[in-house]
Design a protein around this nucleic acid. Sequence first.
DNA 1: ACGATATGGGCACCCGGTGTCACAATGGAA
DNA 2: TTCCATTGTGACACCGGGTGCCCATATCGT
Lengths: 203, 203
Amino acid sequence: MTGPTRDHTSGPTTGPGRRRTTSPAELERVAFALFDSDGFDRTTVEHIARAAGIGRRTFFRYFGSKNDVVWGAFTERLDVMRAGFRARPADEPLLESIRAVVVDFNRVDPGEGERHRRRLELILRVPALQAHSTLRYADWRAVVAEFAADRLGEPVTALRPQAVAHSTLGAALAAYEHWLSNPGTDLCAALDDALRDLGRGFG
Amino acid sequence: MTGPTRDHTSGPTTGPGRRRTTSPAELERVAFALFDSDGFDRTTVEHIARAAGIGRRTFFRYFGSKNDVVWGAFTERLDVMRAGFRARPADEPLLESIRAVVVDFNRVDPGEGERHRRRLELILRVPALQAHSTLRYADWRAVVAEFAADRLGEPVTALRPQAVAHSTLGAALAAYEHWLSNPGTDLCAALDDALRDLGRGFG
DNA sequence: ACGATATGGGCACCCGGTGTCACAATGGAA
DNA sequence: TTCCATTGTGACACCGGGTGCCCATATCGT
């Protein structure tokens, strides 16, 4: 086991040893360009590596898998979401807190909008990525479940918090898909709608 | 493209040509035995094929992928669920209908219980299968979304029916996991709980 | 200059999956 | 009975993602 992706975020900027020849961000750029022109499936890791001027083996030191490229710094962003939950008033209804945080989590600065869209397009439309995404969603759900458990006064492993986390993820995914399929619509509005309906029990 | 799995259910029992040397059911038996003893990941398709006395290539004529073995005749069972939806009274609240049908869909005759458990255990615990399952869930969701769209008087592609389908799947998955993690508990009861909470908006 | 340290990357290998193609088995027609 | 169309089988070669191994290559502190 060559462990997962080497940690590129916490390493000291200075120190002994050879300098890195590239960065995850740069690889991501190169990879996305190829995904755009050739499609995800037809873009091989070999292609990406060559285009970035590194070896195939080295690619896998930057990303644990070809799929992971698409997800970028997702895991780190979850801390933002966690912080968002901590900031909600304790007496706010559970699903309202979740809605507020999830909607806010998906706000992205206008400049990054197009990239965000292409990212989501890949994740939700390419079967290989749809499948792989499930594993990433687990982390997202864990954050929500933790919050829900806290609010409900139940263990994280209990049925209720898990059901809340799973369901909200579901609602969010529906909103994503709707946004992708309907150009011009607002992602945050769709998320808000879906999560509001969820809080109402779709009545 | 060698198309997906060859159809073993509708072919005429008689006709010209060589007879099949095995069956999906038999392969499933053999494969599950190996999964039990060696684990899913360490069981190679080569192993399964050898154990079943067929060639590796032939295995892929019976199942489109190693993952697919675990799912058995899932797609066919969806017709049962569709029928279940048709049988609900038209004035029943949406989520109550869904709850009734989903709970019923997961009732399995006692003799098959253990197999069902091992199947779900693989699907929900083995990362490779967790990932692959997403693609199968899509079919499940489509059935629910179709029903929800009908009841809501909206197109299937609309946000609401999709959110309903996604959310109910989420609740169901939470129930499955809870059931697996707590031996002795009742799957149907967990499903009922989770879906009831969902219908209430987790209030 | 030297050695500890960390990154780069070639190589061989595993495994899942697919296209090709020859061969085996079987039923029906001549 | 013989032959043929039909259908299943499986060897072979190949691709692509992913990994273990191991050495080359930089770079820093001494």
